[in-house]
Design a protein around this nucleic acid. Structure first.
Lengths: 252, 252
DNA sequence: GAGTGGTCTAGACCACGTA
DNA sequence: ACGTGGTCTAGACCACTCG
C-alpha cells in the first residue's frame, strides 16, 4: 500500500530521522525495501511532493524540503504604519538587512481580469493600466505585485512610466483629485496557476496567498487594485494589534 | 505528453467550456481520445487534482471544482472591533445570516507542540491546557481553533471546562491578573498535514492558512496562543484599513 | 558508464454507486 | 451488471549529472 510507504517516510521526516536537505532512499531502493513495483513507490513519493515535504531533484534523488520558516520575514504590510516616502518600502525594508532586493517593473495597458475589473468597478471593455512587478531577494523571486489603475485616471501621469515613482503612486493619484484614504484587503489561499509557477519559480506542493488590496477615495470609489501573490514557502504574514480581543473570533 | 492533456483540460475549465460541477470525460474516453495509455491520462488528471481544479468522485467521474469564493465570508477577525460579550463571536456572526453554526469543544492537558511551546515561552516538559475546537457551518467543517494556555495560569479556572465561556477567556485571564492587552498575529500558508485533512475533511489540492495568534500581557509575557487552521477553499480573510498607504509595501 | 528520476505502455483486479 | 476511478505490476526508453 502506497499510503503506508508515504506514512513511513512522512514520520521519518517529521521526527527528524530525515532532516532538512537529507536525501531519501532512491526509488529503486524503496521498491526492493518494500517489495513493491516502482509505480507504487512513486505514488507514495508523489504524495509527499504534493504535501510540500520533499522535492525531487532531477538525477540526484528526492530531498527533504526546507522547513516552513525559511524566509521568516515579518511582512510589515498589514501593520498600519507611517508613510515611508522616497522609496518603495519593499526595497527599504530588506536592504536594511543585508539582503539584496531587486525588482522588475513592467507597465502596460490591458483589459483587466474579472476579479480586478469588478473591484475597480469598470465596465466590460474599459481598460486599465497595470504596473506588474516581480520582487527578488538575493536573486530568488519573492513575490509579485501587480497594481491596476483605471486608465482614465492615470493617463499621461508618472504612473505610466516603467520606473519607480519616488513620491509614491498615492501622491500622483492625489494630484489627480483621487486621494486614496481607505483600503479593503482580502487574502485568498490557493494553489498557483501554471503562470504563477513560472513567474515565481514555485516548487510543487507550494500554495500561495493572493492578497488583493482595493484602494478607495473618501467617497468610496476605487482608484487602484493591487494583486500580491505570496508563495507560501517564503512568507509569513505578521501583524500586531493593540486591544483586548486577541484570539480573533475566539471568546472562550 | 501528459502536460499537454492537462493543459487542454485546464483551458476548457478556465474558459468555461467545462463549467463548475461539470463532469470531465472518463479516463477511458480520454485514453482513446488522445491515443495514450491510461496511466498517462491519469497523470494529467492527477496534476489538475493537485492544482485544486477538479475533484475525483469515486465511481462517477472527475468533476470541476467549486470556484474559490464559495464561502465569500468576510472574516471580521482582523478588524479591531469592540468586544462582543456573552457569546463566541463565531457563533454570533454566522447565526445572524441564516447559517447553522456549530462547534465541538474538547479540553485537555498536553505537552504543547514546539511552535506553541516557543511562543508561550514554556520550558521543555511544561504543560499547557488546550481547548480544541472544530467549527462547522451548515454541517461542514469550517475551521479549527485550538487555544493553548499555560497550565499554571488557568488551573482550576473555567477555562478547563469543556463548555463555552460566556464572559470570554480574557475575563478569566484578567481575574488571574493576566490581562491580555496585545497580540501578535502570524499567518502561514502551506499544505495540510494528514491530520488536518481528516479533521477538516479537506479535498486534495486544498491548501490551508495557519493563523497563529499570541496574546500578551502589558509586560509582554505570553498568556495564550491560538492556532487557527483555515481551509483555503472556505475562507477569504478580509479586513479594512484607514490611512494613506493601501498597497501595502507598494509605493509606485 | 552508472544511477537517478521522468515518462510511457499494456495489462490486471478491486470497491463502489448507479441504473 | 456495468462503468467508474483506485491500486498495482512488470516491464521499457529517455535525459541528465556525476564520478
Amino acid at each position: 500500500m502506497w499510503s503506508q510507504i508515504a506514512e513511513d517516510l512522512r514520520a521519518k521526516i517529521t521526527d527528524g530521522t530525515l532532516p532538512t536537505d537529507a536525501r531519501l532512499p532512491s526509488e529503486a531502493e524503496l521498491t526492493t525495501q518494500y517489495g513493491v513495483a516502482r509505480a507504487t513507490v512513486r505514488q507514495a513519493l508523489t504524495a509527499l511532493v504534493n504535501e510540500g515535504l520533499i522535492v525531487p531533484k532531477a538525477p540526484r534523488g528526492y530531498f527533504v524540503r526546507h522547513r516552513q520558516p525559511l524566509f521568516y520575514r515579518p511582512q510589515t504590510e498589514f501593520r498600519p504604519q507611517p508613510k515611508t516616502p522616497e522609496m518603495d518600502r519593499f526595497m527599504a525594508d530588506h536592504s536594511a538587512e543585508g539582503r539584496e532586493p531587486r525588482q522588475s517593473i513592467d507597465v502596460s495597458i490591458v483589459a483587466p481580469p474579472p476579479e480586478v475589473r469588478q473591484r475597480l468597478k469598470l465596465k466590460e471593455g474599459e481598460l486599465a493600466v497595470v504596473r506588474r512587478r516581480v520582487r527578488y531577494l538575493d536573486g530568488e523571486p519573492y513575490n509579485t505585485n501587480d497594481s491596476y489603475f483605471p486608465l482614465s485616471l492615470v493617463q499621461d501621469t508618472e504612473i505610466m512610466r516603467p520606473v519607480d515613482i519616488a513620491r509614491g503612486a498615492n501622491e500622483v493619484l492625489a494630484e489627480q483629485g483621487q486621494e486614496q484614504v481607505r483600503a479593503l484587503d482580502e487574502i485568498y489561499v490557493r494553489m498557483p496557476t501554471p503562470d504563477e509557477v513560472r513567474r515565481l519559480d514555485l516548487g510543487p506542493g507550494t500554495p500561495i496567498a493572493c492578497h488583493i488590496c482595493t484602494g478607495l477615495t473618501a467617497d468610496g470609489s476605487p482608484v487602484r487594485v493591487v494583486v500580491n501573490v505570496l508563495p507560501g514557502d517564503r512568507h509569513v504574514i505578521v501583524f500586531e494589534r493593540e486591544g483586548m480581543d486577541p484570539a480573533s473570533n475566539d471568546k472562550a
